[in-house]
Design a binder for these strands. Structure first.
Lengths: 193, 193, 193, 193
DNA sequence: AATGAATGAGCCTTCATTCAT
DNA sequence: AATGAATGAAGGCTCATTCAT
């Protein structure tokens, strides 16, 4: 089962969506096509299993990064989160890309993406508080904007295979944006009461 | 030719990527499949033609919005830009989504997306200057972060069919983020010399 | 189209239901599988087309037999009908059998059989009248009994490949049964008023 | 073993031939597929076992009906037989239908059907004698006609799911046909010596 | 005796593309 | 330029059957 999912990831990584056929996956996994179908109802089910795995990995990475006891300033913590996201997206770019594509192509993508986004939003919120609180709870729109812009930037860099993806400068700018935004939210909220 | 591309857009809009077959497009366009192949060497060529058209339309929309002589403050001009982006993405969501997917699925997507992003980055830069300049020229990474976060947020809202997509509150938050980021960039740059 | 149906009949005739694959049919018809699917939505559609054709042929045969101006006595006309049914059932036994099976396996069979049965029932009724009327209109149950017993006997003989299928003795007995039954019905009806 | 056959009948009854897979049968029987193959060499072997069982049950029903000491007139005894046949065909229609189909699909059907038909023919003969004999031994063709028409009518009613299947009127007509036929045979035979 | 994971031949069907008219 | 019937490679999936445990 795990080997089949792994094979699927490899196929996707190497040949993209076009190469992703159940027969190819079975062959690479070293099992018969029948066995594949014993574990996954559907080509789609396999895809979802793969996606779920990737998502959980990403979640874990971000979560672990935030547990880390590095720099506990707002800047430091945002940077930890940004780094985690970048990392989560860098391993097996093509596979991940293909998974996202395939998922979106069927409408199942959003539900699977949602948890990650929610997690990121919550993390941002948490980060904003800390020792000397920066912000209160975010509104729905605010949470959306933080999480999606962060993920959007990173994803774009991955998809476009930008050379500066791993650079310090890039990280810096993303951090700057998030921190600036959280600050602005805080300022606006502070004024309101 | 135009009618074929239009048919392609409609098919994509209505049935998504799965419904997008050359035969279906030809039929809807009211021409024979042979004629379609007279104008487009390939299914892919048709897709590219469609994408190019959509891209140009988006570009035009943003450009026009920035020409408009509304509120000329930084806030006002960023808001005009944000609105234009949101609009550019809302007409025919599904078709656009499908185009992006299909394009990405083949690796052609990035080149076609690039001009829009470049344009958005330039617009942000321009906006930052204006009467009383906010910022100087952006670095490559900064331009990337502004354009992709903006587009990323809007795209996510479209794909996830968020109900607040057209709301004032959503627009407000995006503007807040862009302005805060531009401000932070400006501050950092100012300090450095 | 006709050649495809014909090929289907031949395949069914030779190899039974098991050999009836769309690929086999296409090959025997000398067309590509794609062409087959241009004319028939489905494997099932092909089956139905075949069945309809066979049914109409059977109908025609019986109809023509009854038009014939042979012996116009009740006995003579019943015999003409019986003979026609036997003929209708004898050509391409296996193909016919397979069609019926396949059809029944999907529930579509009955509707296609019904017209033949209705026709036979009407024929029996007509025969019962003639110059010196034997019977009035049959009740639903009576019509059913005449038509189905007649068809049932012949079908059984065909399926079991009885050697006496074409014999005079066999024909004689069937005629005897039908005539006796019509007589009994007539007698019962006559008594009732 | 019995439970496997029973499971097969249930599957056939509920889902028709299409649902009749060895795996499905094993699951419903609550045994593993391996066990099923321990008892039946083949899917076909299972089918034959099922058919044989059903056949014997039918045989038993008719036999018992004829033993019964109800009305001993020809009419009364024919009616008892007709009723038994109807009953034999009515339980688990779909399963029975499917069995017949499946059997026919492989050519094994006829041999299994034959005993029932033979039995019916013999019964008809017996009935025709009784206290005041109606007929002598039937010819091969006559026996065939009585048994197959009777079975054919009932089977058709079952397959077509005729609403009058259980009605008195229907029974009446079948009885009328059989009795009329036996009478005609008797008359003809009587004349001949 | 029982289990059930594994097998794989082969079926139905789709759809991009061609080419003679 | 346009047509559209024909093509056929290729893919998803089923299910009877085996065999090591």
């Amino acid at each position: 089962m795990a080997s089949i999912v792994e094979a699927a990831a490899q196929i996707l990584e190497k040949g993209g969506l076009a190469a992703f056929t159940t027969n190819a996956v079975a062959e690479r996994a070293g099992v018969s096509i029948g066995t594949l179908y014993q574990y996954f109802t559907d080509k789609n089910a396999l895809l979802i299993a793969l996606a779920r795995g990737e998502m959980e990995a990403a979640l874990g990475e971000v979560g672990r990064a935030l547990q880390g006891d590095g720099d506990s300033s707002v800047d430091g913590r945002v940077r930890a989160m940004v780094r985690a996201i970048i990392h989560a997206f860098r391993g097996r770019q093509r596979a991940r890309k293909a998974v996202v594509q395939a998922l979106l192509a069927q409408g199942n993508g959003i539900e699977l993406m949602a948890p990650v986004a929610a997690f990121v939003a919550r993390a941002a919120e948490t980060v904003g508080r800390g020792p000397n609180p920066l912000i209160g709870p975010l509104t729905r729109e605010q949470a959306f904007v933080v999480s999606r812009s962060l993920m959007g930037v990173v994803r774009a860099a991955v998809l476009e295979e930008q050379p500066f993806l791993a650079s310090r400068a890039f990280e810096e700018e993303i951090v700057r944006m998030i921190v600036a935004y959280l600050g602005a939210v805080s300022a606006a909220t502070g004024r309101q009461p």
